[in-house]
Design a protein around this nucleic acid. Structure first.
Lengths: 238, 238
DNA sequence: CCAAAAGTGTTCGCGGTACACCCATGC
DNA sequence: GCATGGGTGTACCGCGAACACTTTTGG
């Protein structure tokens, strides 16, 4: 099935052979007490029925991040995520068909935001806990591993963690986020002191709802202020 | 002219159009008091005679870093450098001929080690000071800018600076390196204290030669020890 | 009133920073 | 002997780390 604007196969000839170029996305989502990765089950060969990262071929009329977002939307229904280029993988044998170079991206999604649904090349879509990943197609396990490393590094010196939380969150949620990603417990008082001292969290007048204990205050991240401070040489660090 | 193992143009046909894939290298070298970048003057269109980064098309039988090293050797005569993937650039109009995606690398070279010489696609090769770069072909100015950012970040938390120095160096040379890359003066006593306290510099029994003042002691970087410490959770930082 | 998590300050030690003088060497 | 850079120590301050109890709320 081909929709308008997606020309079917044709004949494209070049003077030298070219590797195929794809994008792949490692989408992270924060669940109650672990980090999850979005995977699709492949409808097609190679590695039919195996779980893999969402991704696909780059078209000539789209940039690399555009391709990543398109594939993500097509295969899983996910849109509006934080997206960042991770690394380009080009091992000779990473695809059994032919030489394929892939530009990998990682994305941070608010789990609650997204109703995922399989489509196009994906038989199924699902979130998998990081420590319970199935065997992955191609070199995707390597890509996921690298994405975690990157996330773990990045979260400590850039405020990307907020992309995994709803717009309003409690300090405990934020602390849990760091504990999960960094895989180490943090001291509650020191954590709060540190975060609040940056003066980048706006205290709202709301508290969390539906808990059966004292409700915690909700905060927002002040992105505007962060950008302003950054231009003045400030650098975020946990 | 085509050497053996480099088949000339042929006819390669695909069912879907493919972007061309290239690699480009930002090679840094440390001069007496500034940082230099290696550029080549293009022999061919597009942007004939303009200065550009060394680079070229990726072949099907070579990995991305292999392609980067090959192009570097072919066009400039440089070999045996520290090489690391930088970023992949894929803007639609970055090449006037057609869609070209490039995987950029940056490299650190010991200036003294290399007798550069132009060949293949390069009319000339030369080192340019960072603040005296000519107008560059394609989006290469953007690539260089990104490489500097990366180097500036990396040098502070990984011992890559040593790749720019001869195997034996003085503490003053090392300090100059950091001052040049980070563009800020450093305190001599604090710098020495810090570096020596890491216990990663091996004091040799040699001193620098041919200076007309007191000769400074030469040190070596203890890579083995660094790798061992790193495995134990140590992290280098300036 | 009980369970559960929210919220809050102080002390201590280490590491970063600021700072100036004498020494060795070549000419 | 003079010019040039090599080499060295200490005092202070701020920040990260360790640590426990009271308060609020819902059931």
């Amino acid at each position: 099935m081909t929709s308008p604007g997606e020309p079917g196969p044709g004949t494209f000839t070049y003077a030298y052979p070219r590797p195929a170029l794809t994008v792949d996305c490692v989408v992270f989502g924060l669940d109650v007490d672990d980090l999850k990765v979005l995977l699709i089950q492949r409808r097609l060969e190679p590695h039919q029925h195996m779980w893999a990262l969402p991704g696909g071929f780059v078209r000539l009329d789209e940039t690399l991040p555009d391709a990543a977002r398109r594939e993500l939307a097509e295969e899983s229904g996910i849109t509006d995520v934080y997206l960042e280029q991770l690394y380009t993988f080009g091992a000779l044998d990473r695809d059994p068909r032919e030489r394929v170079v892939t530009v990998a991206y990682y994305a941070l999604a608010k789990l609650s935001d997204h109703r995922i649904r399989a489509a196009t090349d994906a038989e199924r879509v699902a979130w998998f806990a990081l420590d319970g990943l199935p065997r992955l197609a191609f070199d995707h396990a390597k890509i996921v591993e690298r994405a975690i490393e990157r996330l773990r590094g990045k979260v400590r010196y850039a405020p990307v963690g907020f992309e995994l939380l709803p717009p309003r969150f409690t300090l405990t949620q934020l602390q849990r986020l760091y504990e999960i990603i960094l895989m180490q417990p943090l001291d509650k008082r020191n954590f709060r002191k540190k975060l609040l001292s940056m003066d980048l969290l706006i205290e709202t007048d709301e508290v969390e709802q539906g808990v059966r204990h004292r409700a915690a205050r909700l905060y927002r991240f002040d992105k505007k202020k962060y950008e302003k401070l950054t231009r003045q040489g400030f650098s975020f660090a946990i």
